[in-house]
Structure formats: structure tokens, C-alpha cells
Design a protein around this nucleic acid. Sequence first.
RNA 1: CGCGGGGUAGAGCAGUUGGUAGCUCGUCGGGCUCAUAACCCGGAGGUCGUGUGGUUCAAGUCCCACCCCCGCAA
Length: 314
Amino acid sequence: MKILFMGTPAFAVVSLDALVAAGHGICGVVTKKDTPQGRKMRLTPPPVKTRAKELGLPVFQPDTLRDEAFSELLCRLDPELIVVVAYGKILPASVLSYPPRGCVNVHGSLLPAYRGAAPMQRSLMDGQETVGVTTMMMDEGMDTGDMLLTRTYRPGENECFGSVSDALARLGADALTETLRLMEAGSLVRVPQDGRLATFAPKIEKSEETLDFSLPARVLHNRIRALSPAPLCRTFTPGGALLKIVSSSLPGLAAAGEAGEVLTDGGNLLVCCGDGQTLEITELLPEGKQRMKAADYLRGRKLKKGDRLGRKEN
RNA sequence: CGCGGGGUAGAGCAGUUGGUAGCUCGUCGGGCUCAUAACCCGGAGGUCGUGUGGUUCAAGUCCCACCCCCGCAA
């Protein structure tokens, strides 16, 4: 099938590779523009662009899909189908209606739950034991199109967003190729979403990164893994140093302490939470340092029993 | 030249007003113990990021240049 692929991050690269491996003709790859990133604000190409170039595919990085230039490009490429995986921009009706086979999207949740920008993170934050991906026919709504295929995944108790995203990227690619196979065979079944069951997964806001130890341990743990390996949850030491939390676990121990109180002097870093349960911080990233095991951090004697982690004092 | 932190034994850190390096852990050997991630004794392991750089009688410690890592901000 002659396909126009639209996607941006590493999550989408897996699907792009799968399409190529499945022998589909990719007439073009549309991705977001290079953005300044990192300390030096160096212009960095999105992963999909890098991969597309390696594959020798033509890459397009339009400012907008809503102008004449893109319409002309669309006509020139003349795709039968558009596949969208984490592109990062809304497709206008003019684009959605162009390809005869329509537009297929790979979405990182089991729709109609978690429509929106950050489905995987929100699923983990909510402590969902089953997550997944859904392929769907796109329409003008936000992830409201008819569902095609799903794949489910059960993340481990401590599994972080990065790992889940990798897993779902593979499952998404798998679901995508199967969807296209069924489409070509004419046996694709479209399942309308029940809008009454819809939930939303808005993008992560900066304020959500700061840990509030008055919350229950499980809530904190889920947030930590949902935001790892990036952007990471943050808290502050009594000295005011920023501490990013990379990973944690729930030892299931009750504790009588104040919220954010460090309960140990060495070894494991146990912190008392609002519900009287403990959260074990297993890996962290001190400001200006490499990420390290919490036990290593304690070896440097930066925290001792009775210290309180929390918001920066002002 | 956006702001800032850091590069010292395998790991995490300390190192005061410049005088050739310490701590916790790990590791190796021995001991104690029914046993142990516990305890005791002992050992190995470091050109202190790079520069056959500058200052100095003497630099991890001051100055200069460069490389690398990280946080903030985007």
C-alpha cells in the first residue's frame, strides 16, 4: 500500500520500521520540525526523521498542515493511506479526507480510555494494571475514531513509563501491520467508541513533577514511574538541593512519621508518606550528578534519618 | 558566548589557610558463628578528567586552556 507516514518520537520509529519491513511503500514521512534541545539549544532532528533518512525515505517537516503548500504536497505524494503515530499535531479535515483508505492512528491506550496526549503516563499514574494500544480510523475528534485492533500489556509493579512505552511501541507496530493486512484483505472491522466511557489523558504539567509526600505512598510511586525516565519527579533535600527520583518501590511497611521524613540512615532509602505507608526510593538523580542507586547516594551521607524531603522552602 | 553543579581507589563522598590522599560500601584473605547481608582482624586497589601548561621549595588544593558528565531554562 502506498502510505504517507506521520510521526515524531522514538515510539513512532518502531511502527515506521514495521511498515517498511512489511513491504509497504512509504511515499513520504512527515515529522515535526527540528527543535532546539539540550544545554546548548542545539537544533535536534526528531527520531523519526533520523530513521527515515537512514531508510532513504523522503522527509517533510511542514510548519502547518493547513496551508496550500501541504495540500499540494499531499496531491503530489498521493497516498492511499495515511498512518499517524505520535505525530504531535492535529490533522485538519482536508488531510483526513484525502486518502481513499483514510487515516489510521496508533494510540497508546485502550480506547476509549485515555484519549489525548499522554495516555501511557496517565495510565501508569492511575495505577492501571492493564494498559495497551489501539489502532483506529481517525476522525476530526481527539482520538474519537472507530477502533480497529488492540493489544494489551501488563506492566510490572515497578515498571516505568520508558519501559512501557518501548513495549507498547512494539505492540503498536504489531497491531498496525495487522490492521493494514486486514484492510487489504477487506476484513477490517470498525468498532465505534462508546463516548460515555471516554476518559482523558492531558499532557503532563510541570507542577505534577513535584512530589507531595502527604499523598499516599502508592500514588507517589505511580507518579514516579509514570514520569521516569523523563521528565522525572522531583523533591528537595532539607538543604534545598533538587533531587530527582528515578525509581521507587512499595515495601509495604507502615511507619509512624511525618510526611516526607527519611526513616533510615543507610542502606535503603525509606520515606514516610501521608497514608502512613513507606515509599522506598531506589534510584535518584541529584542536581548536577549522575543518576545513582539510593544506597550509593546515602553512602555520601547527604541524608540522614529524620531529615524531611519535600517542597523547596521559600 | 543563556545560568549553574561536578569530574579524587570498583561505587558514593571528604580533603581544612597548598606540604605526595582519607571515609562509607564493595572486593580479596583470615577469624568468630548452627548460620548470616551481622561482627572482628588484615590486605589489595588512586599518574587526584586532560595538558611532558603556569605560579611555587612544594598543588588534589591557586592560575590558564581544553575534554567529558549533569541540573535549570527552552
